[in-house]
């Protein structure tokens, strides 16, 4: 393995001169072993560390009517999440975008539940439909993000000013975070209160997407709530009126 080579000059040189030795150590087995170790680490470990989204749910205990925090009607926006599934329960994919078919029904303020012709279907449900689309490269927002963006414009504009400063290194990370937090919780601004409700079919992914939108749109007041009869009736009415099965 390891060889000690004598150089040729050694023999003919001066008598008594030190012989020059070149030492070659064969590193091939060492490389073999290292490669094995690398393979082992690549197969048995993961580089990706999961992220978490922190949420706080309200207590399950009954709250007295007087103690309840009432939201201003003008500020409230309710999102109802739904996911289209086939007969087997698989999430259906949108063929154009290749994304799962998540639908967001939403209404602003209180639900309108008039049924004047008494056919059991709400006449003019104030419910609309959007999708999770995101934004274009130019920063335009689409889908439900656009709706929430417009509702929270004042906060977003203020935060963008700070963000620009932070990008230009005028603010440190921490300073920017505290400023952004203050702006998010600034009660003098018009801020929405978002109530997120997920239908039984809605996939976990759509719930996370909805929570994600809160982060993206810097909305500080949002709540996950249970879907109730009124919401189901609204969706049913919307579907019937628009001929969706």
């Amino acid at each position: 393995m390891a060889q000690i080579e004598q150089s040729d000059k050694g023999g003919k040189g001066k008598k008594g001169g030190q012989k020059k030795m070149a030492i070659h150590v064969d590193f091939t087995p060492m490389v073999d072993m290292n490669m094995l170790l690398i393979t082992f680490f690549m197969l048995c470990t993961t580089m990706i560390k999961s992220q978490t989204l922190q949420i706080a749910l309200p207590s399950n205990e009954k709250v007295e009517e007087a103690q309840q925090n009432k939201t201003k009607q003008s500020e409230a926006i309710t999102l109802i999440l739904d996911t289209e599934r086939d007969a087997d329960g698989n999430v259906m994919m949108d063929l154009e975008t290749g994304k799962p078919k998540h639908t967001v029904y939403y209404y602003e303020g209180k639900p309108v539940v008039d049924d004047e012709n008494k056919d059991g279907i709400i006449d003019n449900p104030n419910i609309k439909v959007e999708k999770f689309i995101g934004n274009s490269n130019t920063g335009e927002t689409f889908g439900i993000r656009n709706i929430l963006h417009n509702r929270n414009k004042q906060v977003l504009e203020k935060i963008n000013v700070q963000k620009e400063k932070w990008r230009n290194k005028e603010l440190t990370d921490e300073e920017y975070q505290t400023l952004a937090k203050d702006i998010r919780n600034d009660s003098t601004l018009v801020r929405p209160v978002v109530i997120i409700k997920a239908g039984p079919n809605a996939s976990y992914e759509s719930l996370i997407s909805a929570l994600d939108e809160m982060q993206i749109n810097q909305i500080s007041r949002y709540q996950i709530d249970n879907i109730n009869g009124v919401d189901s009736a609204l969706i049913f009415a919307y579907k019937t009126l628009n001929g969706i099965k």
């Binding site: 922190q54 749910l57 309200p58």
Partner: peptide
């Protein structure tokens, strides 16, 4: 990601009942 909310809700609801209201969702 494809699990329906009705299943997830069961877990979240149990945590609420246990008064462990704050938790994180892994993503």
């Amino acid at each position: 990601k494809d699990t329906p909310y009705s299943t997830i809700h069961n877990v979240l609801d149990n945590l609420q009942t246990l008064k462990l209201n704050k938790f994180s969702l892994m993503t």
